[in-house]
């Protein structure tokens, strides 16, 4: 089933035409990866899905982006959208608070006050992010004292705590060592049973390892979108082939 549908979408940063006529549908409970060289617009597209681009001055979007067939740039409350579509950033950004308060921040934002309920959410979110065993004795410690990999998994747990439907991951492993990266990839494969995951990655091996579908972008255009093994073994477009065989990018 299609979770996100993008139709005839164009995006401008002032005069710069950053995304050109993008058409794309992303399926529920699958991992979709956006790949392409720097500046191709893949992160921009990802940030349009939870409207984080609203923060960028001069950003204008035309066309149609729908979540469960609801126009996200229409009547939908942007805060509800962001609750439904969580995001993990390139650089881990835990708040300067305790581990517990980091996870509880989202649920508290959405009105959960009861201590027992919050305790439960904190534990289940950390378990889902496969970091409960490492952190269960450090819930009251500052999140800034964790290692980079732990911080990023904490951020995933924080995103899961508001019970989103979609998880956007913006090069979430690019700043991490191979072992932490491996843990997060494993986690994504586990999480896709419950969530729809859309990720931007510079690492083509990563896309190949975990993504069900892959979209290749170049200079603001979506060149090709297909099942991942199809894209990597038998690309239809010459540009895709050139990119994945490492001839540019």
């Amino acid at each position: 089933m299609d979770k996100f549908t993008i139709k005839n979408m164009n995006l401008y940063y002032g005069k710069f035409h950053a995304l050109k006529d993008v058409n794309l549908s992303m399926q529920e409970n699958k991992i979709t990866a956006f790949i392409g060289p720097s500046g191709c617009g893949k992160s921009t597209l990802l940030k349009s899905l939870n409207r984080m681009n609203d923060l960028v001055e001069g950003c204008k979007i035309t066309g149609d982006i729908r979540l469960d067939n609801e126009d996200i740039y229409g009547n939908m409350d942007v805060n509800i959208l962001r609750k439904r579509v969580g995001m993990v950033f390139q650089k881990a950004n835990p708040f300067p608070m305790s581990v517990y308060d980091n996870i509880a921040y989202g649920p508290r934002t959405h009105g959960i006050r009861k201590k027992s309920e919050l305790d439960e959410i904190v534990e289940s979110s950390l378990r889902d992010a496969a970091i409960w065993d490492e952190l269960k004795d450090r819930l009251k410690k500052s999140a800034l004292g964790l290692s980079g990999g732990q911080q990023q998994r904490l951020c995933i747990a924080r995103a899961l705590a508001v019970k989103p439907e979609v998880l956007l991951m913006d090069e979430a492993t690019s700043a991490l060592d191979p072992i932490s990266t491996g843990k997060i990839e494993e986690l994504c494969l586990k999480l896709k049973d419950q969530y729809t995951i859309i990720m931007v990655t510079h690492n083509m091996q990563q896309a190949l390892r975990i993504a069900d579908y892959t979209a290749f972008f170049l200079l603001g255009e979506m060149i090709e979108y297909d099942k991942t093994d199809q894209i990597f073994s038998n690309p239809k477009e010459k540009k895709t082939e050139e990119y994945i065989t490492g001839r540019f990018g």
Partner: peptide, 13 residues
Amino acid sequence: PEPYYEGSLALGA
């Protein structure tokens, strides 16, 4: 740092 702000917005705050 601005990423704190973005992280909070991205949770629907």
